[in-house]
């Protein structure tokens, strides 16, 4: 494990070094909202908590071409898009990097690894800023993620007073640190890491329970889901912003003799998500779709992958227009169980 110190005043030079061989993204403030965008020389807006969008904008874009086609009924030629180029994302919070690791378990699973995601993941360097302060909606510790978590990151920066401790987590991270060697001091500062490791994050009792999955399955058919459905608008914002939601749809568009098959984010909260031709729908009600989301994240994904499909980033809680945040819903269900 390689550790280095970076004086705070050299952070901009370090970023420029990253931008030399790749498109560089990071959090920037746009009209009062912090978003991950191409930095383009702007200083990153590193604030407690997370930008509104997650890294999936850069690893599984909201829409992308699977292939283009051209021809007619009896003659068709397909063309696949060019391979993605290198990108680096700076100022990622540990939970978002852990989310990539979770999503990769599904999208990279063989024998049908998601080729587009695989190529992008291989061309992406993740530079994570460990947290010294929790954001207003954060609850990472309740789902087994730490404010100093290195999973999914290539380099973790631990902020201290006057400098950052830089830790290379992967071989790619190591080569980043080597290429930026001129700005770095080979010293260590174990205190910087320890500080982040002990950053206080609110703990949510209802989420933290070890038997959470079993307790959720026990209330799977409880009428309280109907009560939640009365409040939910079905807008799907929670799923689009969630860094561990990966559902997508495929769709064709045509202009004359040319067309494109694309993939785009989809949401289990949408009415036609599982509606079949012929009218059968295994998730026919809003209540059944809300239940699907919670059970998938906290019981069924863990049953297969051993970890929650939730990293406690807090986006769903900060964004839901009717305040149906995960922690609150679980607390309500705990009341029902009591």
């Amino acid at each position: 494990m390689t550790m280095n110190l970076l004086p705070s005043e050299r952070l901009a030079e370090f970023r420029e070094c990253l931008a030399a061989g790749a498109r560089l993204y990071g959090p920037v403030e746009v009209d009062g909202i912090v978003l991950f965008e191409e930095l383009g020389g702007r200083p990153p807006a590193i604030r407690p908590g997370n930008p509104a969008n997650s890294l999936k904008s850069f690893l599984c874009p909201q829409t992308e071409a699977v292939f283009d086609f051209e021809g007619g009924y009896t003659d068709v030629a397909l063309r696949v898009p060019a391979a993605p180029t290198a990108q680096a994302i700076f100022g990622v919070r540990p939970c978002d990097a852990v989310a990539l690791e979770r999503v990769s378990r599904v999208l990279l699973a063989e024998p049908f690894a998601d080729e587009s995601y695989r190529q992008r993941r291989e061309m992406t360097t993740i530079l994570t800023m460990a947290c010294r302060e929790a954001g207003p909606h954060c609850f990472c510790r309740s789902v087994g993620v730490s404010p100093a978590d290195g999973r999914g990151s290539d380099v973790v920066l631990y902020p201290a007073d006057g400098h950052y401790l830089l830790e290379a987590v992967t071989a790619r991270g190591l080569s980043v640190l080597q290429s930026a060697g001129a700005f770095l001091d080979p010293a260590r500062d174990e205190a910087a890491r320890a500080t982040c490791q002990s950053t206080p994050v609110p703990l949510i009792g209802a989420v933290e329970r070890e038997d959470l999955a079993a307790r959720l399955e026990a209330v799977a058919l409880h009428p309280h889901w109907d009560e939640l459905a009365r409040r939910c608008l079905g807008c799907g914002a929670c799923t689009f912003l969630c860094p561990t939601c990966y559902c997508f749809a495929l769709f064709d568009t045509v202009r004359g003799a040319r067309g494109r098959r694309s993939r785009g984010w989809d949401s289990c909260q949408f009415k036609d998500y599982s509606l079949m031709a012929g009218g059968h729908d295994p998730l026919p009600t809003k209540a059944s779709r809300i239940r699907r989301r919670f059970l998938h994240k906290l019981s069924r994904f863990p049953a297969v992958q051993g970890e929650y499909a939730c990293v406690g980033c807090g986006r769903c809680g900060g964004t839901c227009p009717v305040g149906l945040h995960l922690a609150g819903v679980l607390s309500e269900l705990e009341e029902v169980l009591r």
């Binding site: 599904v106 999208l107 699973a109 049908f112 998601d114 990966y246 559902c247 997508f248 749809a249 495929l250 989809d266 289990c268 998500y273 599982s274 509606l275 079949m276 295994p282 998938h296 069924r300 994904f301 049953a303 297969v304």
Partner: peptide, 16 residues
């Protein structure tokens, strides 16, 4: 209902 057919798009899950 299926979109990807290869265990990624989430559509056809029944429990785990």
């Amino acid at each position: 209902k299926m979109q990807c057919g290869v265990g990624k798009c989430g559509r056809c899950s029944i429990g785990p």
